[in-house]
Design a protein around this nucleic acid. Structure first.
Lengths: 107, 107
DNA sequence: TTTGAATATAAAAATATTATTATATAATGT
DNA sequence: ACATTATATAATAATATTTTTATATTCAAA
């Protein structure tokens, strides 16, 4: 059984340039919000909202360290592989009408 | 150099339950819109719009066969691996304050 | 050359996401 | 207690996505 709702949500939440940037930063290891914010050009509240979205989607988690919140990727392997998948996204197919003649006949 | 804009867009377009369903169907091989529609509970125009979104994001392409349009996944390996990644999404990490003591000291 | 099937497109309505602004909270050091 | 730092939250405004409804296009077959 597939839970495509959840999968769709994960993809949707990852599918935002700022959130990808956050993930790339956190791939180097945990970091607090302020530190992350130094490397990303968004407002503090907006970063906080993106971190919340990623956390609610179960992509990030955090733990409190004094007044800071230290965010980290919950399944780093998963995120790493996701990026890797895009860096090398495989063979490309192009079909023409002729390639489908058999299939067409059967439908 | 990363093109996170494009990556984000691909993820965003894939991140919709109906579009994932379309992809799962097309993983079995090319199919025309009508045929696809029989397995998905959305209106014809809406399906057409989803197919357009996937095509514009360079995830699908199609070729005309008579009055039909036969859609197919442009990089099936990529899509296959994407689903596989979610089916087995790897080790899960949980950090506590103590785990970060060193890191914290250096920041 | 009209009809029907397969599909797209346009416009509108409904809904969701994103960014901004202003304010609040919580922990730490003084 | 008070100020400061790090952060969240709430409310709004701006924008984008999604679905619906109605109509148009295109090709093939009768």
């Amino acid at each position: 059984m597939h839970d495509d709702e959840k999968l769709a949500n994960t993809l949707k939440v990852m599918g935002h340039p700022v959130r990808l940037q956050i993930l790339r930063i956190l791939l180097d290891g945990p970091s607090c919000a302020t530190l992350t914010n130094r490397n990303i050009d968004v407002s503090q509240p907006n970063l906080s909202q993106h971190l919340k979205a990623l956390t609610e989607a179960d992509i990030l988690d955090f733990c409190k360290v004094g007044t800071k919140r230290c965010f980290y990727i919950v399944r780093p392997d998963f995120v790493k592989k996701m990026f890797a998948l895009f860096d090398n996204d495989g063979e490309r197919i192009t079909l023409k009408e002729d390639d489908l003649r058999d299939k067409h006949a059967s439908e």
